[in-house]
Amino acid sequence: MSESAITITNLTKRFDDITALDNLSLEIAWGELFGILGPNGAGKSTAVNILNTLLEPTDGSATVDGHDVVFDPEGVRKVIGVCPQEPAFYPHLTGAENITLMGDMHLVPKDVLKERVKTMVEKIDMQGHINRRAKDYSGGMIRRVSMLMALISDPKVALLDEPTVAMDPKSRRAVWDFIRELKEQGKAIILTTHYMEEAQELCDRVAIIDEGKLIELGAPEDLMEKYHAKNLEEVFLKLTGKKLREAI
């Protein structure tokens, strides 16, 4: 196990004339639940997608569990669990089959996989629907299945891009508990979200980015103190100066 779970060093990503990430540097420890906050288009997904090897950085570097995302993407893919912002799933497969398929990709031993699907499904309260075709799921059900698709391999590093969007309060709480459990197991978790109470509730530290630049970094309670705010949302609004819009 490498010293820190994730290191991001002077990371820059440009799409033609848009600079999505601008010289971002972060370090995330094992057992840390790290939130990336920022308005729409701030570069949150871009950062996550560089870490999950889908995008190559224009400049700078990043490692996950010591594996460089550019030079050792295979090494990175083995240790990460990815929950994309847009949940991708096979509509003709059941929820359980979608989750199992991801377990197969990670070569999780068959018996372990079967058992794990069962326990994880119960944790997110999907046991009643898990054998239905995914195409018939509601938005929140899809999100929950997508989350398990990311975590079925029991990854050391979880990259969750807005995992709780579209979930009802009960499901969201269930997912929070689930995420906390992952953290207790010593995993490193990156979570992007537009729900400030979620970040405040869950995250050990948050990075607030805007236009690709890191504008603040710290534990939610420290930031609230620093900016004399009663919650993280106030901090966020003060820093970004923009009205928070939720991307659903």
Partner: peptide, 13 residues
């Protein structure tokens, strides 16, 4: 288009 290829690409497959 549905991002499934991308999703697979983030796994060891």
């Amino acid at each position: 288009d549905e991002g499934l290829l991308k999703r697979l690409r983030t796994t060891p497959a």
